[in-house]
Design a protein around this nucleic acid. Structure first.
Lengths: 343, 343
DNA sequence: TTGAAAGCGATACCAC
DNA sequence: GTGGTATCGCTTTCAA
């Protein structure tokens, strides 16, 4: 077909009608006689007519595009959410643009600016973090934040997330129940600190020594503030152990981090599940692969995606901009890393 | 800022110049006096002017958008390539739209149609498969296929891939060297069959029995033709074993498949690395996690992405449409699953 | 039921 | 250097 270049105008000329009529036929609008309707449909089919979205968008002042902004699509957790989002929005006539920020503020802002210029109808943030002062950047565009950290507790926008503090608390509780007394919390995302600090010992002052934040018995290991990597995590935990710190329980905020910890422990001949227990967060595919398998907290990725998508769609359809927090429940999946090795 | 709604026309009015001049300033074109240039720049900054891409696209007949079509972004292999692609194209002023097909032909065609309507400048296929007859769908739009299977050996388009037949051959050879004599090839993607058949025994007729294709000593297990899942693969291999077939080596086309096989073997008390050896393809993060760790073939995701992106960009810039095949070299990373367990 | 024409926002040609 | 204006493809009001 000669798909390109044939416009509504060509169809109109060939069919001997006006562009208005063609437009009406193509959009099932207005009253058109069955006869002309059939003729127009037939001709546009034959000519391989392809509607031009740029023109439509320009005219309608909306693009039916959604921007998805994430630190790194190759992160399994984020891409699972992205898949949910894309599937949902495609089903509703929207197309999704994707941008990776590598957790860099400049790339984040660039992405927002770019998508704003492209007049996306809505913005979806998946993972990553923002200072609240950044929020006015995407002025006017409806947006939803999924698994995104802010430096304030009540950002003026719509947030969909699990209750991070509760997850850390539940993970810690499980470790205590299983007999641990020296628990480290492992994260590479600076703003998870807020959540961790609001965890079991929020009321106690935190003292800092080196890269490790000490909250009572709990130690928070904080890595470089970007993509959680297995290697980085292994290093972090290895250093902590080699420094002679006591440690019998780890809460890892992310399965990748947990795997790094696992490697560090195994490399030092420490029996994971017995001498040191691990609870991870994410419950991705990764948690079921190592030996011992990892106890991990299921965050219900499908719900994170779906609820976020629904919320955004509602804003788009009603022209509203809601704020608030949608909390997705979590669930501990206990496996060998807290139960000890199966016989 | 009042970013939305302020157009080049408003800027022109406020600055007391014509839209032509504003356009020239904003695009560094034509001759404009330093004075007006500064004034225009200043005003558009102050007014929070945001260029409208829809209008620009309509006028310029190109969108600077690229469509990425993949079976499933949540697949680590695909999303790693997607990340490369997005990073590259963002660096060149393009924005990427992403569509998932779930390996369904209807969704694939829908995605192509949709992206064509959106007038994307180029199309990138990552993974999945097509019948050659489908190719004329995206008429005129430059496209590049990465890790994509066709039902013909020389499709009239540009393909970037590893040499699948060689990878299967090398994997098989390694297994033979390590003493295996009953090798199964494990795939869920129907069209990998073509590649596998062109592997070590291409010259021998294949006989079919059940879901297992027998090529000499080699057995090809073929699953449902969609997203390779761990569970599916476990089932497939389990059934094969339970049927009493001899088996001491597995070539899995994808790390997920290998992990499924690993589970099936472990569940039956078979020592992987000793009694049965496994070579996998992908060398993703997943290969380094289980115990035994998996010998896997590195496909160089970064190269697959980069070479594909470069090829497409070249087509876009030169207005050409090349065809042919870019082969990315592969590399075996040997680990415990073929060496036996480390002491 | 149909058509003429305005206009969305930006670019670019051609005068001045 | 700068400005007037046609144009990209489509939607939509208003008349006929």
């Amino acid at each position: 077909m000669s798909g390109r270049n044939v416009s509504i105008y060509d169809i109109a000329r060939i069919a001997g009608v006006s562009t208005a009529t063609v437009s009406n036929v193509l959009n099932d609008k207005g009253r058109v006689s069955e006869e002309t309707r059939a003729r127009v449909l037939d001709i546009s089919e034959r000519e391989g007519y392809v509607p031009n979205f740029a023109a439509k968008s320009l005219r309608e002042a909306r693009t039916r595009m959604i921007g998805i902004i994430t630190p790194d699509v190759s992160n399994y957790f984020y891409s699972s959410i992205a898949l949910e989002l894309e599937t949902f929005f495609t089903g509703h006539g929207y197309t999704c643009c994707i941008c990776n920020t590598y957790n860099r503020d400049d790339l984040l802002e660039g992405a927002i600016r770019n998508l704003a210029q492209r007049q996306v109808d809505g913005l979806l943030f998946v993972g990553g973090s923002s200072r609240a002062t950044r929020l006015d950047l995407s002025d006017g565009v409806p947006e939803v934040y999924i698994d995104h950290r802010f430096d304030v507790s009540d950002p003026p926008c719509l947030v969909v997330d699990n209750d991070m503090a509760a997850m850390v608390r539940d993970a810690t509780s499980l470790l205590l129940e299983r007999g641990c007394s020296h628990v480290a919390i492992l994260t590479v995302r600076a703003m998870d600190l807020h959540a961790a600090r609001n965890g079991p010992h929020a009321d106690q002052a935190a003292s800092v020594r080196g890269g490790a934040y000490c909250v009572d018995d709990y130690v928070i290991l904080v890595g470089p503030h970007h993509q959680p990597s297995l290697v980085e995590s292994e290093q972090l935990v290895g250093d902590h152990l080699d420094a002679g710190n006591e440690l019998d329980g780890i809460v890892a905020i992310g399965d990748r981090l947990a795997l790094g910890a696992l490697n560090a422990l195994r490399a030092r001949g420490i029996k994971v599940g017995d001498e040191v227990k691990i609870v991870s967060i994410d419950n991705s595919l990764l948690a079921r692969i190592p030996s011992p398998t990892l106890t991990s907290i299921e965050r219900h990725v499908d719900q994170l995606g779906l609820r976020g998508a629904e919320a955004l769609l509602e804003m788009l359809e009603n022209g509203t901009r809601s704020t608030g927090k949608i909390v997705i429940p979590h669930e501990i999946m206990e496996r060998e890393s807290t139960l000890g090795r199966q016989p």
